[in-house]
Design a protein around this nucleic acid. Structure first.
Lengths: 139, 139
DNA sequence: CTTGACCCTGCACCTACGTACAGGGTGTAG
DNA sequence: CTACACCCTGTACGTAGGTGCAGGGTCAAG
């Protein structure tokens, strides 16, 4: 069980010191115990949690969601099923995002080709389309 | 040339009234002229701009970027080439986002299958992996 | 004339995720 | 003992993109 100071934890967790405080305040990290001088003393469990948070963030979980995952971990009787359900929902979200990005990309690519096809340095098809492409009827 | 009130413009542009004010203040919409009572009077050009903004936002442009596009439109001598360049950069951004989402998705999907493979209602592979998957060395 | 829908302004507030101070105390090396 | 690095707190600020409200004026119908 290592004992870590604020600075060490932050460095090894690859985050800003203020971020550690912020996570503590948000309840993502437990309140650290204190040295006689009032300095926070972290265990390596805190480091593990911090890395959990970072990793989950990379995987696209928000801090709120991460808080829920951490909470599930505590009373982990049938936590796994619920965690899996959340993860599946997350995958569905990601799919939606990917899909909408692909549509954006297709639309923009089409505009770029229209640009290349345009007659002279005349009107810009991209701006035109952003302008005009509002559908037949928006009352 | 229709003359629109705030409320009409907002409704037809599908945004909140406050949002119209916000866009005006941010310089995305020109300062509207005023009636004798001080009410904003919008032309349908404002409506077109508003729709431009919405459309560009759907395509993933930020409000700052949209401001730049609108500015380019004004002095549009060789605007088209610059707009196209920006659009191409935007497509590259989108590609990056898609890629990273795909990686997230793959990682999460892998975790879900690990979940299905687990022995009993024992430890949750998802939580474990978020926990432990920190690489061999983070000093 | 009254009522209700609409408009005005400025300012505060919101989510999400932190970052940056200011103004202090502590711990340690030389 | 003096530096200097490190720690503490609370609070303000930052971005992005708005939303909401108070306290007022205006306009059209009945």
């Amino acid at each position: 069980m290592e004992r870590l100071t604020m600075g060490e934890l932050a460095k090894r967790g690859q985050v800003n010191r203020e971020t550690v405080r912020y996570y503590e305040q948000r309840g993502l990290l437990p309140r650290a115990s204190r040295s006689m001088a009032g300095y926070r003393v972290f265990s390596d469990d805190a480091l593990r949690r911090l890395r959990f948070i970072r990793h989950a963030k990379v995987l696209g979980f928000s801090l709120n969601e991460i808080g829920e995952l951490l909470a599930l971990r505590v009373n982990s009787v049938d936590a796994c099923d619920r965690v899996r359900a959340r993860t599946q929902a997350k995958v569905a979200d990601i799919d939606k995002k990917i899909h909408s990005l692909q549509q954006m990309k297709a639309a923009l690519s089409e505009l770029i080709s229209a640009c290349a096809r345009r007659g002279k340095t005349s009107d810009c098809p991209i701006l035109d389309s952003l302008d005009a492409n509002v559908g037949p009827n928006n009352t």
